[in-house]
Simulated scan of single mutants.
Amino acid sequence: MKKLSIIIPVYNEAKTIHLILQKVINITLLENTSFEVIIVDDCSTDTTIEAVNNFIQQHSNQQILFLKHTVNKGKGAALHTGFKAAQGDYIIVQDADLEYDPNEYNILLKPMLDGVADVVYGSRFMGGNAHRILFFWHTIGNKFLTFLSNMFTNLNLTDMETCYKLFNAKILKSIVLKEKRFGFEPEVTAKIARVKGIRIYEVGISYYGRTYEEGKKINWKDGVHAIYCILKYGALRF
């Protein structure tokens, strides 16, 4: 029996955290695959902690681990905490909002379980799945960051910034990650690309994006920092 560790970094997501957790525990994974859920709260200032505790109490039969930061450190730092605690054979990142559908884990898992992949990215820009129409400049920004990242990694990804990244746990834990905020995506991509013999796949997924009024947090400053991280970690190849 293989196990999937689902890492959920959380910061001020009281409105949606119970909804995404319900979606996660309702998933049916491919045969002979179980899962654990690891929630890492990054010092939320709303009622997120209360909402998570209530959910865990109501679903005590589920394998859910709730970890908390006493100071706000950033998404990357929350992921580092979750990765260290993960006990599964595979690790996937799940945002606490409703932009990504946990029912699509199996799409990412299949190449891994088939023994052909070590890392699988879920792309919002390929395949025929549902994709909410939102911000033109965000799309241009994402494609530019992916293009720039590909230049340094020599990969041909279509969506480097995607949340859905599925890793072989041993490989992920062998990598030293430093970025504590939104620089995680370009850093982990640059570093896994340097793993000898790594097999990276990409599959199409749905995307139910949200507006800033609905709680979206990432902004242009994070995009600038992503460029910095691509140059910083990508340059190590040369």
Rank of each mutant, 00 (worst) to 15 (best):
V10Y: 00
P102S: 01
K170L: 06
I230L: 07
L109T: 01
K15E: 15
R124A: 10
A78D: 10
A77N: 12
R194Y: 11
L231F: 14
I39R: 03
E187Q: 06
A96Q: 00
I133H: 10
H69A: 14
T146G: 15
L157V: 05
M112W: 00
K217A: 03
N154G: 08
L166M: 13
N32G: 12
D95H: 09
T211S: 15
G115V: 01
V119R: 00
I171D: 15
M160K: 11
K221A: 13
G183Q: 03
L157H: 01
E99H: 05
L148T: 02
M1Y: 04
L236G: 07
I20E: 06
Q57T: 14
P186C: 12
E99V: 11
A169L: 04
E36T: 00
K191E: 10
V71H: 12
N53Y: 03
M1P: 06
R194M: 15
T48E: 07
D222V: 05
Q63K: 09
E214A: 09
N154D: 13
G215W: 07
H69C: 13
Q22S: 13
A235E: 10
L236I: 04
W137R: 11
H131L: 11
R181S: 11
V188Y: 03
K196P: 05
T153E: 06
F125M: 14
V120R: 01
L166F: 13
L65N: 10
I25P: 01
V176H: 09
A117V: 12
F136K: 11
G82F: 00
M126D: 09
N156F: 09
F238D: 15
Y100M: 14
I107K: 13
G141Y: 06
I38G: 01
F136W: 05
F152I: 06
I64V: 08
T48K: 05
N168S: 15
L172D: 13
